[in-house]
Deep mutational scan, measured.
Amino acid sequence: KKTSWTEEEDRIIYQAHKRLGNRWAEIAKLLPGRTDNAIKNHWNSTMRRKVEQEGYLQESSK
């Protein structure tokens, strides 16, 4: 079943993607209940745009 993505999950994906790049299977290990494919789709459909537009979460990672 599809549940919506939480801010916490987005944060984990964002940090992991910065470190690992497009290694979705590795990132998926950090998110129980999410598949690598689901994460990749979420990144491509939602997060990548956010990151590019806003420099997503930069201000809170100090």
Rank of each mutant, 00 (worst) to 15 (best):
G33R: 05
E52I: 05
I27G: 01
I39T: 06
K29F: 02
I12W: 01
I12M: 05
S61E: 15
E8G: 08
G55S: 14
G55H: 04
I13G: 00
R49W: 13
W5Y: 07
T3S: 12
A38E: 15
E54G: 14
G21H: 03
I13D: 01
E8C: 07
E9V: 03
Q58V: 10
E8T: 10
V51N: 12
Q53K: 04
P32S: 05
G33D: 14
K62V: 05
R49Y: 04
I27Q: 02
G55P: 09
Q53L: 11
E54A: 11
N37P: 03
A25R: 09
G21P: 07
L30P: 03
E52N: 05
A28N: 02
A25K: 09
K40F: 04
R49K: 07
N37F: 12
W43G: 01
G55M: 05
R11C: 03
D10E: 15
K40W: 08
E54F: 06
I39H: 00
L57P: 13
I39C: 10
Q53A: 12
S45N: 08
Y56S: 14
K1C: 07
W24K: 01
E26H: 03
A28H: 01
E59T: 14
W24V: 02
G21I: 00
R34V: 07
I13L: 11
T35F: 01
G33S: 09
N22D: 10
L31S: 00
A38Y: 01
W24E: 06
I13N: 02
P32F: 05
H42Q: 02
T6W: 00
R48H: 07
L30C: 06
E59F: 03
Y14P: 00
I12E: 03
I39K: 00
N44S: 11
L30G: 04
Y14H: 13
L30R: 05
K62F: 10
K2E: 10
I39R: 00
A38T: 08
R34N: 00
K50P: 11
A28M: 04
G55W: 06
E7S: 07
Q58M: 07
K29I: 09
K40H: 05
K1D: 07
E59L: 08
R11P: 00
E59P: 07
I12D: 03
S60Q: 10
V51I: 11
T35M: 04
D10Q: 11
H42N: 00
A28S: 12
I13Q: 01
Q58T: 09
R49E: 13
Q58G: 14
K1G: 11
W43K: 03
K40M: 14
I13R: 00
E7V: 06
H42A: 01
G55E: 11
Q15L: 11
H42T: 00
R11E: 09
L31I: 15
Y14K: 09
R34C: 09
E7D: 13
R49D: 15
T6A: 05
K2S: 15
V51M: 08
I12R: 06
H42M: 02
M47I: 05
T35H: 09
G21E: 06
A25H: 15
K29R: 10
K62S: 08
T6V: 03
W43D: 02
G33T: 11
S61G: 15
S61N: 10
G55Y: 06
I12N: 00
G21Q: 02
K50H: 08
D36E: 09
T35W: 03
R11T: 09
G33F: 05
K62G: 08
S61A: 13
Q15A: 15
E9A: 02
M47W: 04
L31C: 14
W5V: 02
G21K: 04
K1N: 15
R34P: 00
G55N: 15
R34A: 07
E26R: 03
A25G: 14
L20V: 11
K2V: 12
R11I: 05
Q53S: 12
